[in-house]
Amino acid sequence: MNVIFYIASIIAIMATIMVITGRNAVHSLLFLTVSLLAVGVVFFTLGAPFMAALEVIIYAGAIMVLFVFVVMMLNLGKAYEKMEESWFSYKAWLGPGILCVILLGELIYVFTVTKGSSQPLTVITPQEVGMSLFGPYILGVELAAMLLMAGIIGAYHIGRKKQKEYHRFLQKEEESV
């Protein structure tokens, strides 16, 4: 199980690096899907099979499909890849990259200093998760429902194309301006 964990984490890290250095949006989305699937495998090895299923269904399924649809609607062509090339200069990523590597070093230090003992893997079943979710966390579930409703309404309201209606005499003036 440990070997599976390490292989999946290496795949996740490599795929994420490919996402943040990619030029083509569709290719980056495919790598992001691979990364999410690898994280799903990591969940499975950590003893959370229900979360692994949710990761595959919701993250790699639903959210990525939304992304792919929007990228297809925007229909960015070769010109945008060229533009990406010019934006992604080495001056742009050097500073943040160094700062994040320092942060990562600190985190690795913290995790290696506090050496915990490895314990046997206990699978937390969906039943326990459900009991906890609809027991002490019921308020959070209701808040999440309200958040999703607000998200639906907000996405509909923002994403709608504004219909511009002018009088036909005014329309020419508007176009000339």
């Binding site: 199980m1 440990n2 964990f5 390490y6 984490s9 996740a12 890290i13 994420t16 690096i17 943040i20 990364s35 994280v39 990591v42 090895t45 950590l46 003893g47 990523w93 943040p96 990259g97 994040c100 942060l103 990562l104 985190l107 690795i108 995790f111 290696t112 506090t114 050496k115 915990g116 003992s117 490895s118 314990q119 046997p120 893997l121």
Partner: peptide, 21 residues
């Protein structure tokens, strides 16, 4: 099987920092 204690958190930190970059 035994799971390593901190590797999951370490992977989460690495992925978070990659996203931050």
């Amino acid at each position: 099987t035994h799971i390593p204690p901190n590797e999951g958190l370490l992977l989460a930190a690495i992925l978070f920092l990659l996203g931050l970059i």
